[in-house]
Design a protein around this nucleic acid. Structure first.
Lengths: 165, 165
DNA sequence: GATGTCGTCATCCTTTCGGGTGATTTCGCG
DNA sequence: CGCGAAATCACCCGAAAGGATGACGACATC
């Protein structure tokens, strides 16, 4: 789960789930009588309930993530267009869309840019008037979001993703 | 496990959820016996089972789709990667002249390229079938020639000087 | 007013880097 | 042949970077 868990969409889905879940349970309890009447074993009945609900959960999970992917793909389309229209002479327009989907804040990108400039954490700290620890925290978070283990890797990823010139 | 799981908070939430889930299961298993023994209604028992498995189903569904989403994301990234690198029509002609004037050997440039790729010394060593020490000496010499103190700086300089794409 | 995000800073601990120094082997060239 | 450049590797040591975790204030959102 992630950024989008904070979105209203997600919350709404959870609510829907609660509602539908309750509904299903009610239905189950209703249908249960029929099973009991037909004298099925409790184990079998429980297994059916289990399977049904597991399937339901998977379905719901799919639903939720599908809406997420829709959003993401829309973003991607735009991203492809940007570099395609502004080829060479651009003063470099950072890919804000991707930055957003990755959850990278402005400050983090700022630090990443300085990292790409070959500065050490201490130099960055001095330049931004913050402590070296702060820079390290920002770096750690950024590396996490870029799935990078080293600063060189983060820089490389940043360029790949159009976050850096 | 998940690109988007950057927030420690989220990690904690997932952990808590897992823990509570386990606790619920244990409780359920415990109470189950009591219900059965005390001959409680099958309805109540079934409801509990239903809830339990609904939760499990949701969890499972989310887990499955999450990993799938991760894969999807990776693919998308690749898709964007290609057009991002393609517009540069030139296959990149390294500035051999400058390399020569700086006294940078072919091997050193090779290592520098891998450094720019975000690899660690160990990874480079593995990839080139040499020891890590060797990579380090190559790096040191290269940094020296590029007047760089850090690898990020060396990479930046290398790009400036047209040694790297 | 509770919740979440962001930026800030800290501490502890491990890994990685970088500098310094020296050694060996291979290869080409005068 | 001897010389030097290049590549290889080793060891030590200090500095830098990275991971994990916790905390706190400001601010926005609900």
């Amino acid at each position: 789960m992630d950024i989008l868990l904070h979105n209203t969409i997600m919350k709404r889905h959870v609510l829907i789930f609660g509602f539908v879940g309750g509904l299903l349970i009610a239905t189950l309890q209703y249908t249960e009588y029929r099973f009991v009447i037909i004298e099925h074993s409790v184990e079998l009945y429980s297994a059916l309930v289990a399977i049904l609900f597991a399937a339901f959960g998977i379905w719901l999970g799919l639903r939720i993530t599908r809406s997420r992917e829709t959003i993401r793909e829309t973003v991607v389309v735009r991203e492809v267009l940007v570099p395609a229209q502004a080829p060479a002479l651009e003063p470099f327009a950072p890919n804000t869309a991707r930055q957003h989907t990755l959850g990278i804040t402005a400050r983090e990108l700022e630090i990443l840019t300085l990292v790409a400039g070959g500065l050490s954490n201490r130099e960055i700290a001095t330049q931004l008037f913050v402590s070296e620890n702060t820079v390290k925290t920002h770096c750690a978070r950024t590396f996490d979001k870029l799935v990078a283990a080293r600063r060189t890797q983060a820089v490389q990823r940043g360029k790949e993703l159009g976050l850096l010139p």
